[in-house]
Simulated assay, not measured.
Amino acid sequence: MKFFYERTENEDEVKIVLKPHSFFIMLLMIAVWLINDLVLKSAPIAQFIMPIFIAFMVIRFFSIIRVQKEVLLGMKQRKAETAGSKFSLKNPLTYTIKKH
C-alpha cells in the first residue's frame, strides 16, 4: 500500500521507503483514547475508538509484512543498506537492497 510504504525497483536495486504517517496516526489514536479514558470517561467513545485502532494495526501489519520479509532476506545476504529515520517526515527510513 502506498500509504504505508513505497517500493521502487530497477535492474540494480530495490528501494523501500517506510512512511511514518501510520505511526503518527497510531499515536494520535492512543492519545485520543487516553484523553477519553482519563478525562471524559465515556465508554461509547472507547467502544468506537478501540476497534478502529485494532483494525488499523492489523491492516498495517499485513501490508508491511511482505516488505519486511524482503528486507530481512536482504540483510541476511548482506545486500541491504539503511538510511533515514523511522520518525522523520523529511528523511524517512529507507532500505536499499542490491540485486547483484
Rank of each mutant, 00 (worst) to 15 (best):
I45N: 10
M50P: 06
L18F: 05
F87W: 02
I16Q: 02
G84N: 07
T96F: 07
A80M: 06
S42T: 03
F4R: 04
R7S: 08
L34N: 10
S88V: 01
R78L: 10
I97P: 01
V58F: 06
K69A: 12
L38R: 11
F48H: 06
I25P: 15
K41A: 12
L18C: 05
E6S: 09
D37C: 10
P92W: 06
I54D: 04
A31D: 02
L72H: 08
M1K: 10
L38P: 02
T94R: 02
E11A: 13
K41Q: 10
F4A: 11
I97M: 14
D37G: 08
W33C: 08
F61R: 03
T82A: 15
A80S: 08
R7N: 05
N91M: 05
K19I: 04
I65H: 10
Y95A: 10
L28C: 13
A55Q: 02
A43I: 00
A55H: 01
S22K: 00
I59S: 13
A83G: 09
F61T: 08
I30C: 12
L72P: 04
E13N: 09
E13R: 09
I49A: 15
N10G: 09
P20V: 12
R78C: 10
L93Y: 02
Q77E: 12
F56T: 02
K19M: 10
F3V: 04
Q68R: 14
K98A: 13
M29G: 13
S63P: 09
Q77C: 13
K98F: 03
F62T: 07
A43Q: 08
Q68W: 08
K76N: 13
E9A: 13
K90H: 05
I64R: 14
P92E: 04
A55C: 11
S22M: 09
L38M: 13
R78H: 05
G84L: 09
A83T: 01
S85Q: 07
Y5C: 11
R60H: 07
V39I: 12
P44I: 06
Q47W: 03
V14F: 08
S22P: 14
I64E: 06
N91V: 03
I59R: 05
W33L: 14
I16M: 05
D12T: 05
A43S: 09
E81W: 02
I16L: 14
I64W: 10
D12P: 05
A83H: 01
I54K: 05
I54Y: 04
V17M: 14
P44D: 15
V32N: 14
F48W: 04
V14S: 15
S22T: 02
V17K: 11
